[in-house]
Nucleic acid binder design. Structure first.
Length: 647
RNA sequence: GCUGCCGUAGCUCAGUGGUAGAGCACUCCCUUGGUAAGGGAGAGGUCGACAGUUCAAUCCUGUCCGGCAGCACCA
């Protein structure tokens, strides 16, 4: 007998190997009918699984949030059956559940197109309507391989081989169609329902390996209810509405063009935004004791050979040979570290100089694969808010904690409070001895633990010169962006011959921390645009207000208002055009100007302004001086506000 | 880089084997109008680049460049 505990705490005994379905039926036929799967000790399982030992059991209906992944997984199987029915000879590979849906990868000479979706979806509906039960069989390895080989499913044969020896080979059938799968599944295809949709097709490598076959991947999503699917589709539209590439054009911030793939043409407004962000970081890091420097853009390749970049980073570097007859090759810097080490080395350093902190808004160039380029988020030329901190080994933990605090405080100022930390340890392609790596990783881990923040391990993802922490922030619509980083480097300073004199007059190689907070200013600008859907807070907005006239008799007063606003440090323009106020309101609203100061006959006479904020159709009339003073106050950057408050 | 799709006016997009069109934006004129598009006129394009097929190519074919989605890579 096995003892089964129900969610309400009741406990009953059943003969060994009674299935969940039997138990549900014994309780009530309607429960058995509604139940699509079960959770045993919290773990999802097939309802038809026998219960082998004492367990807590929960019967799950398709409305249970935990069942969503089953709906999607089942839908992936139905997708695969539909595709194989429509196009016999297509090989199936894998079809997992992902964050917002599922996909299935197929191997077929002719790739799918979105035009095929209607046919596939209706075939899927047919299969779902047939409502065939999912049944599970355990096959021997040999049998499974033979069956798949005979069917021409060579990828499946490879998958069977990849399953660890101590695991069973499970086959799930839905009618005649079957697939190798670890499960679990719901009781039948009919439980999937009709709230599903195929989303897109794309190529994907077999087993994620760019040297292997390219498969044709069909993405889909599924929900328990149609309303949830509709809400999801709406959310996708929302993300498109926030796309920084589109907003960048609408707000006249920047553009790209063919001749400079992956490089930004910043327009006046975009560059103002960029510089406002830069100025913010400059204040924050000056406060934290960093000295700003500037190192050359082009440095002879010999230095990059010495640093290890030539050996490990070359495919990402731009090389310049300015004269054919001159064999000298320069590297357009892809990183700032070697330059900063030269500055450290110039002049003898004492242990008393440590920590020695050099910061640079370093413009770096990296030859990114063309397919990786994406607006401001992934470019080939970008500006890092980079710094290198030269310290002793004993100072590592303390300094990492300081950087950690600084980074988190900065993200708060921009409204990012959901930040996670990833710890990346040694990659395969690296420089330096394992003993050095042991030391670096241990120090970083110690600092991480001292910070008391939750973190996750990102195995083998460290930089080639050292392990790193990476800061991932979540934006307003739930997307994650990797921005800041701290990296411990016990390799490069010695490779480039950096040392300081310790208290016993010995030459000692310093430890170097690499750190960036925004990471790339270009990318951070893009993230901010999307995070606030173009509605930048006043202090960041490149154009903070427009003084718009209703009649031309107000022109002089409008000019006066603009001059007064500028004198207070506000970024303001006038709109004196011969257009109706409706037109002006619409145009500036679309351009995401945060504040509209409307002046007509009445305002001119009374020396007031009618204030309209972006996103609201309400108006407030205030005396000009008071309105500008309030705006000027609001436009003070958050860090400056803190300092003022403290004073 | 790989797979698929795409490239026509500043933007969004029609269209055709006989060298092109709309709306918005732009310029000018009229209109001075109270909070998301007032009216009229005009100007604007080597149809991504280069080859090929053809009497004739923006359209068909090929190569290249660029973009989009995903993969791989990554700040």
């Amino acid at each position: 007998m096995v003892a089964v505990t129900f969610p309400d705490g009741a406990r009953r005994e059943y003969p060994q190997n009674t299935t969940g379905l039997d138990i549900a039926k014994s309780i009530s036929p309607s429960l058995a009918k509604r139940t699509v799967a079960m959770a045993l000790d919290g773990k999802l399982a097939d309802l038809t699984d026998p219960i082998a030992h004492d367990a807590k059991i929960e019967f799950l209906t398709r409305e249970d949030p935990r069942v969503l992944e089953l709906i999607r997984h089942d839908a992936a199987h139905v997708l695969a059956e539909a595709v194989q029915t429509l196009w016999p000879g297509t090989q199936v590979t894998i079809g997992p559940v992902i964050e917002n849906g599922f996909y299935y990868d197929f191997f077929r000479n002719q790739p799918f197109t979105p035009e095929d979706f209607d046919a596939i979806e209706s075939k899927m509906r047919e299969i779902i309507a047939r409502d065939r039960p999912f049944t599970k069989e355990i096959w021997s390895r040999e049998h499974a391989k033979k069956v798949f080989r005979d069917k021409g499913e060579l990828f499946k044969v490879e998958l069977v081989d990849a399953i660890p020896q101590d695991q069973e080979i499970k086959i799930y059938k839905q009618g005649d169609w079957f697939d190798l799968c670890r499960g679990p599944h719901m009781t039948s295809t009919g439980k999937i329902g009709n709230a599903f949709k195929l989303m897109k097709v794309a190529g994907a490598y077999w087993r994620g390996d760019s040297s292997r076959e390219m498969l044709s991947r069909i993405y889909g999503t599924a929900f328990a209810k149609q309303e949830e699917l509709d809400a999801y589709l709406k959310q996708i539209e929302e993300a498109e509405r926030r796309d920084h590439r589109r907003l960048g054009r609408e707000m006249d911030l920047f553009h790209f063009q063919e001749e400079a793939p992956g490089s930004v043409f910043w327009h006046p407004k975009g560059w103002t935004l960029f510089q406002t962000l830069e100025a913010y970081i400059r204040r924050r890091q000056a406060d934290a004791g960093y000295a700003e420097v500037n190192a050359p853009q082009l440095i002879d390749s010999s230095l990059w050979v010495a640093s290890g970049h030539m050996a490990t980073f070359r495919e990402n570097m731009f090389l310049v040979q300015p004269r054919e007859e001159d064999e000298r090759t320069y590297v357009v810097k892809p990183m700032n570290c070697p330059g900063h080490i030269q500055i450290f080395k110039n002049g003898l350093k004492s242990y008393r100089d440590l920590p020695f902190k050099l910061a640079e808004f370093g413009k770096v160039h990296r030859f990114e694969p063309s397919g990786a380029l994406h607006g401001l988020m992934r470019v080939r030329a970008f500006t890092q808010d980079d710094a290198h901190i030269f310290i002793t080994e004993e100072q590592i933990a303390e300094e990492v904690i300081k950087v950690n605090d600084l980074i988190l405080s900065i993200y708060e100022d921009f409204g990012f409070d959901d930040v996670t930390i990833k710890f990346s340890d040694r990659p395969e392609k690296r420089i330096g001895d394992d003993a050095v790596w042991d030391k670096s990783e241990a120090a970083l881990r110690k600092a991480l633990e001292a910070s008391g923040r939750p973190w996750t391990l990102n195995k083998g993802e460290g930089a080639f010169y050292g392990p790193k922490l990476e800061y991932v922030l979540r934006d307003a619509i739930g997307r994650d962006w990797q921005c800041g980083t701290v990296q411990v480097d016990l390799n490069m300073p010695s490779r480039l011959g950096a040392y300081y004199i310790d208290e016993h007059s010995n030459k000692v190689t310093p430890v170097m921390l690499h750190r960036a907070m925004f990471g790339s200013l270009e990318r951070f600008t893009g993230i901010m645009i999307e995070h606030c859907a173009g509605h930048l807070p006043l202090w960041l907005s490149p154009l903070q207000a427009i003084v718009a006239t209703i009649i031309s008799d107000a022109d002089d007063y409008a000019r006066e208002a603009v001059a007064a606003a500028r004198a207070m440090g506000l970024r303001v323009e006038s709109d004196l055009r011969n257009e109706k106020i409706n037109y002006k309101v619409r145009e500036h609203s679309l351009a995401k100007v945060p504040v509209l100061l409307v002046v007509g006959k009445k305002e001119t006479a009374e020396r007031t302004v009618s204030i309209r904020r972006l996103g609201s159709d309400k108006q407030q009339t205030m005396p000009l001086g008071a309105a500008l003073a309030a705006l000027a106050q609001e436009a003070v950057p958050p860090d400056v506000k803190r300092v003022k408050k403290a004073a």
